[in-house]
Write a protein that binds this DNA or RNA. Structure first.
Lengths: 154, 154
DNA sequence: AATTATGTAACAGCAAAAGTTACGGAGATG
DNA sequence: CATCTCCGTAACTTTTGCTGTTACATAATT
């Protein structure tokens, strides 16, 4: 089956909390940005609260990031949301009596592990702050483009 | 969704062709090692023939590896079997009018791409020959262990 | 107090993968 | 040359796990 979107959605969620910390953040408001249902958002928020990444702002009762975004890496989020699922799947049903089927699993475990490690190392080098910074840059570029397109039309 | 087992099964298949090149290799025989159905094996073999990695041995009419196993990397196999599926999934349904939802996709595309690239680079550094060599080592270790266990019992 | 939002649990729907059935055709065997 | 086996492929079924929905008890808000 296909991988879940939980990892992406959770990054989205955390960025949203930070970018929109000044408005009232209900699960419905957040869901409108992720384009999912409020229940799904509550589930994601719940998992993050459990892991200590989100708490409640005493001022406005918003959920908010409980840790400096510089100190949250994408690997941290990945492990919370999909940590159980290996990136590469090994077929567990192979004939143990065969010279190939009986030995392929540990061989693949090693190699896949190495590949997965490489990917997760990249994720560990990126923080939520990097995401938020990139979002702002992308947004500025987009707005400048829209403005120039508008001038073009006029 | 989780990834399919096609990647693993195809590596298994190619190793099997090489290790058992001396016996009659029907799809049923191969299926017994992978523990799947002959039809599934035929599908995998078909894809590999299409890609030029397998041809037919004129001697015994077995399917056989058409390229030196040293020159087949796991990345080659990965691209044939799962090349279309990204390792990390990006939620395509986000609100374009939101400062986060409207910009998160390209941001994630960049970072996920970098992580995926790192994993695929590892896969590209491993060949089918490495797999076959490792299988032989694992098998020898296993057999030695069995022999010593047997001596223990006696 | 009344309203609104949360946290969960249970259920339904959907999409993708794996396995199954079926069958025409190619090649092997006697 | 007739039979038998296996292949290649299409269509269908089953399974599985993710997403979203419904429902409701609890907590917080006004």
């Amino acid at each position: 089956m296909r991988l879940s979107t939980k990892f992406s959605d959770t990054i989205h969620l955390l960025a949203f909390l930070q970018v929109y910390s000044d408005i009232k953040l209900t699960s419905a408001v957040i869901a409108a940005s992720i384009q999912t249902s409020p229940v799904v958002v509550r589930r994601l928020v719940g998992a993050l609260k459990n892991a200590g990444f989100i708490d409640n702002d005493p001022k406005n009762h918003n959920p908010r990031i409980a840790i400096d975004p510089k100190d949250i890496t994408l690997l941290d989020i990945y492990l919370i949301t999909e940590g159980h699922t290996p990136l590469f799947v090994i077929d567990k049903e192979t004939n143990p009596l065969c010279r190939v089927g009986g030995n392929i699993q540990p061989v693949l475990t090693n190699i896949y592990g190495e590949a997965e490690q490489a990917a997760l190392t990249v994720l560990n080098s990126k923080t939520m702050q990097d995401i938020i910074d990139s979002l702002i840059v992308h947004n500025k570029v987009k707005q400048a483009k829209e403005k120039s397109d508008l001038a073009q039309d006029a």
